[in-house]
Amino acid sequence: MIEARGIKKRFGAQHVLNGVDLRIDDGEAVAIIGRSGGGKSILLKHLIGLLSPDEGEVLIRGLPIAHLSERQLLDVRKEFGLLFQSAALFDSMTVHENVAFPLRRDRQLTSAEIGMRVDEALAMVDLPGTGAKRPAELSGGMRKRAGLARAIVYRPKVLLYDEPTTGLDPIVSDSIDQLIKRLCEQLRTTTVVVTHDMRSVRAIAQRVLMLHEGKIYANAATSDLFASTDPVVSAFVKGVSTPKDLLL
């Protein structure tokens, strides 16, 4: 179970998170939606202690992590997988080495087993045969999928995805959505997806949190969210800009 209590984060004068409260139960699939630049990626990084809040607390299974040392956090993070928005592949390594990286700390695995697990993960994200390439030789969407393979290869109990389908074509997007859903249902992985893609939300999430102006503005079951009459929520869900959002 992941819980955030009143987390606030400020960069200079900009209050990115302004008291976020949330609670995600084990095995649940939750989507976090919100405007670009609204602090979704920042929020996700707080949930695994990559950033520590200025105020508030994050609890993982009741353990407060906001002020643990980096070394204490490593143990907590072993159960987490995070797909970065930018994929964040190690560019000095091949795709295969990237995906194998989290497995290398498991001393019981032989290199043949590691190779098998890596190939399996690459096939799951529809990237078979790219293992020998370097991240620089991949397209943006392929990098995203390689990052996804790296996040799921060690079968973590909690998976956080930062815009997993952004920049992918609709068909691959759909297969990634199915993959995320499958991981959640078959392995009972707790799933948190940050996304702008309403199709993904529908396909994956049981519950949706909307981050708006640094707070959780809406917290609703997926079907309720799509039926919502709240102007902010329905404008986002339907994708309509109001006159003040127009650039000109």
Binding site: L50, E70, L73, R105
Partner: peptide, 14 residues
């Protein structure tokens, strides 16, 4: 700056 250090940390590597 390309978040690779954060990726290391996320993969439980100091």
């Amino acid at each position: 700056v390309t978040e690779q250090i954060d990726a290391l940390r996320a993969l439980a590597t100091h």
